[in-house]
Design a protein around this nucleic acid. Sequence first.
DNA 1: CCGTATCCTCTACGATACTG
DNA 2: CAGTATCGTAGAGGATACGG
Lengths: 115, 115
Amino acid sequence: MARSRPLSGCGLEAALAVVGGKWKPIVLWRLAGSTRRFGELRRLVEGISEKMLIQQLREMEADGIVARKDFREIPPRVEYSLTEFGVSLAEALRPLCEWGQAHVARIRANQADAG
Amino acid sequence: MARSRPLSGCGLEAALAVVGGKWKPIVLWRLAGSTRRFGELRRLVEGISEKMLIQQLREMEADGIVARKDFREIPPRVEYSLTEFGVSLAEALRPLCEWGQAHVARIRANQADAG
DNA sequence: CCGTATCCTCTACGATACTG
DNA sequence: CAGTATCGTAGAGGATACGG
């Protein structure tokens, strides 16, 4: 147990600048599974609009966590994947994912109360 | 190395519901250090307004990660601390903190470019 | 000292239509 | 298929003044 060592410095703000927001965690998670085409992602990330999907992908690309490969074919074909940097982020995210999963019932209950 | 195991299930959305937003990570970090009084927190978390501080604290309290102790004295004295649940969250957050710290320069540079 | 109460801005996000 | 363009909204966050 690491116990009472503080969250020294707290790079959380920096990290949240990269994976914060409503969609990025989900997109990252999908890409952590495997390389995906645009339309494939759109179907996998339920409820996202094309505008938001492309916007999030562009931002993640600019942040160096996502790689975009355009095959320049007709009809168009583009594949998205995680960079090594992106993979390292996904790994850093895993404990938080697991914490969220472990306590999702409790969290949802509280959110429902608070409205 | 856990390597290519996916971010199974992705409780990230649940976790971000609890520590997402501009201020909660910083407040959590300060409370992970030690118990704090309201005014103390206000000074430690630079730039936060009283409204936002109390709002974030109330939400974190409702989520069960922060405990509020009112000493019912005059002048008023209230102390905030992390619950066990809050401590477990802080621990889950540590790798992400460290990732952010390790790459803060790169991230800030990208944010600056993107504007 | 520890908050409440208003009012205001800004931007993340959404809906819809269109294009190479 | 893989985007772009435009318009609209809700809520997160900010500034300031007041209250027990």
